[in-house]
Design a protein around this nucleic acid. Structure first.
Lengths: 286, 286
DNA sequence: TTGCTCCTCACGTCACGTGAGGTGGC
DNA sequence: TTGCTCCTCACGTCACGTGAGGTGGC
């Protein structure tokens, strides 16, 4: 097929196609006269590329998708976009204030908070691998809805950013990395949201939550106690992440800073402590 | 003030500040030794620039805002962003389908529709001046929520795009242009939305609508009948736009294509015709 | 002299768009 | 020969980021 036909079939421009060739997404044969000849598969591929691009997916991501490399790529994109879309909504609200005559400098506190949300979510995504990054990003975004007002909050935010900047890349063993990638692909963003909301609900009223889910929780606790679990990749992954967090001051630096930044988060942590006690009591009374 | 202090106060980077200087947003004095000296006003300006940038406003727009040039700039941005945000939501839904395993090529029809919405809204924004562009963009976006399924719809869409591409720039006289800019600044996006929704509601049940607003409508009709109105810029603007539409086949090419593209729009036009008759009857029975 | 601040290029980014200048096909 | 298709550079976009190489201040 000549390029002219390809353009008509795909709706792409010549330059776009040439760009994809340059990036190695397709590599059509070149004839004697220098003309490119496109196969049917390549046209199909171009149609896919065009569709992905229109959804806002970057060319490097598309390359991975077409290569079938990564499993959880759509979930990751979806979660990222969901958070981005939340921030867009906030921007709309701020634009509305501008329309109604508010001076821009009076919106600084809210704008700063938006920035904070974005950079913290981004950092979690890149700092923590697989679904950990996604879960943390989602979880902490939830507590970053209030604005940064006081000086102490501003300092806490700076501390968080500094902490995240210092975070090294976790050096996961290859087998755990493969396991994590696999597992991440299988967790949908809904499940992720559901997990996040379940944790929130549990912290709100631990007694009720534990009672309602007592059976599952007991089964889960028992499962965690088996040798089979302890040698499973799931358990080793958990251990690895706990170590990683401990070594990098997650509990000692990051969490306290979050508590200073967000009263809502501080309250949540307080509730968690109570919940832990309730849980311990429940597990103790077999 | 030296640049170092400026960076600390504004949170900007050196390169960002240099870029704004290059674009002429600020022009700090340059001392003998080549160092730049920033005044307090310039620092304030930089803070404003930083805030606007974080809301996603482009540097050229900021230039206009700081120059106090245009009135309706925030409303226009808000409307544009509102439409963009609607499309982002649709993209999220499509990403969800991908996560649940749907092949990308099965989403083509919906993706095409999104593209159609975007390009049609964009074209209205740039083709029709002031609030006309905004109103049309909003109005037609509403009817572009169904997907492009049939071949006839695809052709209708092509016809619309071709029509808009052929549209010349309306050559508004200077005084009308000034009037329009002024008026556009005074119409908030809420009012625009309210207008749009009022028109929809009126078309749904013209009898009820006309009855409920009979007084206002009669007053308005009477007002339109005065000499004072007929020589007003508002009336001349209306006349100009009607002429412009007539000369460019708005009713003969664009509207029929919209009716073929969107069954919802076709139904709306049908209701409008009924509403017109009801209106004529009401006005006739003084 | 040393370490720090500041300056001005030059080049890169991302996904193409816009030509220019030249060749091949019919 | 003519008009059309196709090719490969080269440069532009937007809002900066990343150095390199050099000077000024204390």
């Amino acid at each position: 097929m000549t390029i002219h036909e390809v353009l008509r079939e795909t709706g792409l421009t010549r330059k776009a196609v040439e760009y994809y060739i340059g990036q190695g997404l397709i590599s059509p044969d070149v004839q004697e006269n220098g003309y490119r000849r496109f196969s049917k598969q390549e046209v199909l591929r171009l149609k896919e590329i065009a569709a992905y691009r229109k959804l806002g997916i970057g060319v490097d991501q598309i390359q991975k998708i077409l290569g079938g490399e990564e499993k959880g790529i759509f979930s990751r994109l979806l979660l990222r976009q969901t958070l981005a879309s939340q921030r867009e909504k906030q921007k709309l609200e701020l634009l509305e204030s501008l329309v109604s005559g508010k001076p821009i400098l009076e919106l600084s506190a809210q704008i700063q908070l938006m920035e904070a949300q974005e950079s913290i979510a981004d950092r979690f995504f890149s700092a923590f691998p697989g679904y950990f990054g996604q879960y943390f990003a989602l979880h902490f975004a939830h507590f970053l809805q209030e604005s940064i007002e006081t000086d102490e909050q501003a300092k806490a935010y700076d501390a968080i950013v500094a902490w995240m900047d210092r975070l090294p890349e976790p050096d996961l063993p290859d087998d755990l990395k493969a396991y994590l990638d696999e597992a991440t692909g299988e967790i949908s963003p809904y499940q992720m949201k559901a997990m996040h909301e379940a944790v929130l609900a549990a912290s709100e009223d631990p007694q009720a939550y534990l009672k309602e889910h007592e059976e599952i929780i007991r089964t889960y606790a028992a499962m965690k106690d088996t040798d089979e679990y302890r040698t499973s990749p799931a358990a080793r992954l958990m251990e690895f992440m706990k170590d990683f967090q401990r070594q990098n001051g997650y509990e000692d630096v990051f969490i306290p800073a979050m508590e200073r930044l967000s009263p809502a988060y501080a309250a949540y942590r307080e509730r968690l402590r109570t919940a832990d006690k309730v849980y311990e009591r429940m597990i103790a009374t077999q």
